[in-house]
Design a binder for these strands. Structure first.
Lengths: 131, 131
DNA sequence: CTCCGTGCAAATGGTTTGCATCTTA
DNA sequence: TAAGATGCAAACCATTTGCACGGAG
């Protein structure tokens, strides 16, 4: 998804387009396109580089807005919130390293759908090989 | 799993068997046997009824011990930690109601295993029907 | 009798809230 | 120019930590 599309969705829903919102959207989409799983702090730090005066509470509220609008999703691990793309995929969270690896598996998603579950985010805690 | 077995595992590993540990183990196993997904507070409240002087930090440390020993697992949602059995199953967390529903699906677990993932806990955030 | 475990209180860290100020539409 | 967004500080809440006391082995 393009940042201009996201901005348009917000505009259509009657939300105002502020420089803070545009900046957060740009950073988040950039990270999600790279299949990263940024934490709130990852995003805040990145945004602060471009816009040093932005406040944490503003970033929290923008991320909540994006999530409530179905444009991103999130999951929690070790007390932190990770943000993620809404495309159907599986996040393998390595409990021994805190790394998160994406797996795309249509079969799993289809099996869930057959059971009546429309997944927003799939998270699998696992012990991961290699340390 | 029986509470006596859990106690034995702890003993074998050199951990002391205290009345607090036995009580927490009893409560947790009882809830997990009923396929419930107790939060930390659910467990604390229940334990306090039997043992009013127990402290939260003790319960936290016992639950961490059980989790580190592989006897239970946990997942996080809305800032709270939910405890869960280690049997392979899928937790569907309804974001619109905070309810958690278990699904047993060997196929999903097998697909994950084929991908080299040994799941400790599988969590699926979903919008659930019925309110 | 010796550690390990417990309980208390204080600290921590992520997130939310209240409110005055600023800005988009 | 009016409703909505921002930034700051304080509040919140789940969890962790430090430490003296107590009990399991």
């Amino acid at each position: 998804m393009e940042s201009t599309q996201v901005v348009q969705v917000l505009r259509d829903r009657g939300y105002r387009v502020t420089p803070q919102r545009v900046e957060v959207i740009n950073i988040v989409l950039e990270k999600l396109a790279k299949r990263e799983h940024p934490t709130f702090n990852d995003i805040l730090n990145e945004v602060k580089q471009k816009m040093p005066s932005i406040s944490a509470s503003t970033v929290y509220s923008i991320l909540r807005l994006l999530e409530d609008s179905g444009l991103v999703t999130s999951f929690e691990h070790n007390g932190r919130t990770y943000y993620d793309s809404v495309s159907p995929h599986i996040n393998v969270v390595c409990v021994n390293s805190d790394k998160v690896i994406d797996i795309v598996d249509e079969n799993v998603v289809n099996l869930l759908r057959e059971r009546g579950v429309q997944p927003l985010a799939i998270t699998v805690k696992a012990l991961c090989a290699g340390q």
